[in-house]
């Protein structure tokens, strides 16, 4: 599998995402000004503060040349993972439902959180052991997942809510404790916590690696 990781001016976690994705395959950094996705099998839109997060988190990055190609790639069924700022970018681009509002506590907050995998049969979670919580760090200022009630009902009914915070750990005030959602087609997934920062026991947990392993299964299964 070859994973492309986007790099915007202001991206911070792109190298971290690259190191994590290297554990399951090849990687390449994709510059924001280039439209060529270099034949990747999957795209990661990484964390950070793309374009300084001016105007609104992710609002400028969605208009970048590389995102035009990513939108097309996603429409053709390509795997796209958005982490933190990447989740915000994908929501702004209309590839994922909902929006990420400033945290309920009004502060940038770092915490190691535990995530319940609601949907274990997606292209991003198939390697996650069922009924086990994933211990993954979260760190953001605008991570409060918001959608209107009808959309929330529909997302839940259609299995698009993929991961939830344990209720007592929902520090950002996300509606229905939602930490990550997928699109209807199932090939685009965004979450606020950082699975790429949970791939090595030396620096924390290894639970996040399951997400990358699931993506490899989805891609390499498709190649067979």
């Amino acid at each position: 599998m070859k994973t492309g990781i986007l790099r915007f001016p202001g991206s911070c976690d792109e190298v971290d995402a690259q190191l994590a994705a290297q554990r399951v395959g090849e990687t390449v950094l994709l510059w924001h000004g280039d439209r060529d996705l270099q034949d990747v099998d999957a795209v990661i839109v990484p964390g950070g503060f793309s374009y300084g997060d001016y105007l609104r988190a992710g609002a400028i990055a969605r208009f970048s040349p590389v995102m035009e190609s990513v939108i097309e790639f996603a429409r053709d069924g390509g795997l796209v993972l958005g982490i933190c700022n990447g989740f915000q970018v994908l929501c702004e681009a209309g590839l994922l439902p909902g929006a990420l509002l400033p945290n309920a506590n009004r502060r940038f907050t770092f915490r190691q959180v535990e995530l319940a995998v609601v949907e274990g049969e997606t292209k991003f979670t198939s390697a996650c052991p069922t009924d086990e919580l994933l211990s993954i760090p979260a760190k953001h200022g605008s991570g409060r997942f918001y959608a209107d009630e009808a959309t929330l009902d529909q997302l839940e009914a259609d299995g698009q809510v993929v991961v939830r915070y344990r209720p007592e750990q929902n520090f950002n005030g996300s509606l229905r404790d939602i930490a990550g959602v997928r699109n209807a087609a199932g090939n685009v997934f965004g979450l606020m916590p950082h699975p790429e920062h949970a791939v090595d026991a030396l620096t924390g947990s290894t639970d996040g690696l399951r997400i990358f392993e699931s993506m490899r299964s989805a891609v390499e299964g498709a190649h067979v």
């Binding site: 911070c12 971290d16 907050t109 770092f110 915490r111 760190k139 090595d200």
Partner: peptide
């Protein structure tokens, strides 16, 4: 205080605040 800071970006942080008397970076 420190939970307002990102202590882990760059994937090098072996000991975060309150885990040890000094920070440790691999």
């Amino acid at each position: 205080l420190f939970e307002q800071y990102d202590p882990i970006v760059q994937s090098r942080t072996v000991r975060r605040p309150e885990q040890a008397d000094a920070a440790v970076l691999a």
